[in-house]
Design a protein around this nucleic acid. Structure first.
Lengths: 346, 346
DNA sequence: CGGTATGATGTTAACGCTAACAAATGCCTC
DNA sequence: GAGGCATTTGTTAGCGTTAACATCATACCG
């Protein structure tokens, strides 16, 4: 048996050269066939395709990208995946990008600016064709990287601030304001706020600010508040509601910074036989699907998640296809209050 | 003003050469500094680092990967992100990979084999160092690609089948069997099944098979069943429960293929004043966090999601660090029934 | 039937970086 | 102060692909 038996070829990964040799044409022609680029005769096209399939050749995009200076990757950065809200954004993005040669790549920042910076650096070092990134608050270094990258950037979810380039989202300040107005108009006066402790969730913070501003205009202020971090949001919603109500029993409205804790609160109130929305009104934020299955529909406000994803992807797709499209687009969506069964109508 | 004013330099992206010129050393030395590789004097190190920062240089990993034949990317393929279960797996993976130079890249297949094939092809064309992929069922082409890639593969979530290489998961058949046994032992006899219509959710299918097998051994069979697809799982759980109970009112147990529809069923039963678990017992599957906030704890079985993610990442990390580690590792986790408040104890 | 479009294929030189080796520098020892 | 060793820096040659151009058939025209 020869030393280097042909029976077990070295598992060296295949290159264009292998396909080229197997099909008897130049590497360039193989490359053309595989990319559907330029004129190739039907005969050779079939020959090459067969050889490639036979060998199980998978093109090396690394080499391709380096040579062509084109990378059809879109970096998508979100703070979290366990939130129910971001997966929907990603779905919206994928929907639009599926109709283009672009491919999304996801990165998760855990609401930490340093982590965002690191993940962004990693992603940019692959020279993507665009970036979709949640939020307007970034470290100086991150912002500098984004600006210097020279590629289309879309910041999403939030529009209250100074974008690097384009932006698609809703005004969380306004969302908080409008909810406060609806609550005031419905006649509630002793209002409690329950939210996340996370100081880095800027959107929750802005909703809270808008909320207190609008209350102030009506001569009211938040009567009590309660914060949490970590754990099952539904269970936390229960616990926090119990805590705030036992501390301040005369509250007549509870505004939750997200639907999950709101749902927990709702279940708690129902358990305790509290009259909702008579004795106490409740509202959350996000408009998550889950609410549809609860015994009562929690009042909420849709965050337009899928729509934001689609619009952001559309901006990127257009900018990549037509590089001379003007940057700096701004799309502001306007979520409507859904009164549900837990907030009296005006 | 000269035609080509130096004031606004062309936005050509920076290369090692730019840093090398700015710092007065060779490109190679810059490369060494930036990768912390090889000995470089403290003086030049600082000089280079400053120049790089000053310019805002971001290395081009594409070129780096091509030159070094090393790509520190791990392809992670899951069927869905909106499921709550996969984000937890991804978290487990990230946790372990964060301690290594490896970086996960996520792909979503939507439970479609053709899509899985396409996404896998895309991912492999970036020549990742490993693949973590959900499930054991793949198209022939996908399987061939995985085998031919020559990199470590870990199939996760499920162990009932023939893996390509390594596998980490639980036996869904056994999970179904054990739940059936617990139900039988608790004395329930008229058992209904509620699940997803999706024929491509192999794990749900296997749980169902194990479930009916074990019932058969006890001389029982599923008295009625109900399937759904799409929509809010919680609301669907309600609807399905109502449907199955109105069709077959004498059922004394409902087994749900996941916790979300199970939770919907639980809420429905509580609404209707049905005695749980006296009149009807309920059980789901997955052990999702959400259950902790419900009025009663639904019986369930943990799918060991984070643990699976960690173990899979660990296998990959080890194989990448020590390429001569034996392939074909198999880790079978054993989830325990959590009886909660909806399944009578034996 | 020469001349010229036209289509199909091949050749060459990057792309930006790193492995491997080569050279230069400094430092110590006897 | 020459030899030798360790440390630091530089040089060269790809990595696998594609852009741009060159070449070669073939067909078509008057």
């Amino acid at each position: 048996m020869p030393a280097n038996s042909p029976v077990s070829p070295p598992p060296r990964t295949l290159t264009l050269r292998d396909v080229s040799e197997a099909s008897g044409v130049s590497e360039m022609t193989v490359s053309r066939v595989l990319r559907n680029r330029g004129d190739v005769s039907e005969t050779t096209r079939v020959k090459v395709l067969e050889a490639a399939k036979e060998l199980g050749y998978v093109p090396n995009k690394i080499a391709g990208a380096l040579a062509s200076q084109r990378v059809n990757l879109i970096a998508v950065m979100v703070p979290s995946l366990s939130n129910m809200v971001f997966p929907e954004v990603l779905t919206g993005i994928s929907e639009v990008l599926d109709g283009t040669p672009l491919q999304p790549v996801f990165g998760v920042t855990n609401y930490q600016p340093e982590r965002e910076e690191k993940v962004l650096y990693e992603m940019l070092s692959w020279r993507p064709s665009g970036v979709i990134i949640a939020g307007l608050e970034h470290s100086d270094a991150s912002r500098a990287m984004l600006k210097a990258s020279g590629i289309p950037i879309v910041e999403i979810m939030d529009v209250d601030g100074e974008p690097v380039d384009s932006v698609v989202g809703i005004s969380h300040r306004r969302a908080g304001r409008e909810m406060a107005q609806a609550i005031v108009e419905a006649g509630y006066e002793r209002i409690g706020f329950l939210g996340t402790k996370m100081p880095l969730d800027h959107r929750a913070r802005k909703r809270f600010e808008g909320f207190t501003d609008a209350l102030a205009k009506a001569g009211l202020e938040v009567a009590d508040q309660e914060f949490y971090s970590g754990g099952s949001a539904l269970a936390k919603g229960r616990e926090m509601t119990e805590a705030i109500l036992s501390r301040t029993p005369d509250l007549d409205f509870l505004y939750y910074s997200n639907d999950m804790i709101g749902a927990g609160g709702l279940l708690y109130c129902l358990d305790k036989g509290i009259d909702v929305p008579g004795q106490i009104g409740l509202a959350g934020f996000n408009g998550v699907e889950l609410l549809k299955g609860l015994p009562r529909r929690l009042a909420t406000m849709d965050a337009c998640r899928a729509e934001i994803g689609r619009a952001a992807a559309q901006i990127i797709a257009t900018r990549v296809a037509k590089p001379d499209t003007a940057p700096g687009e701004k799309i502001v969506l306007s979520p409507q209050i859904q009164f549900g069964d837990t907030l009296r109508r005006h």
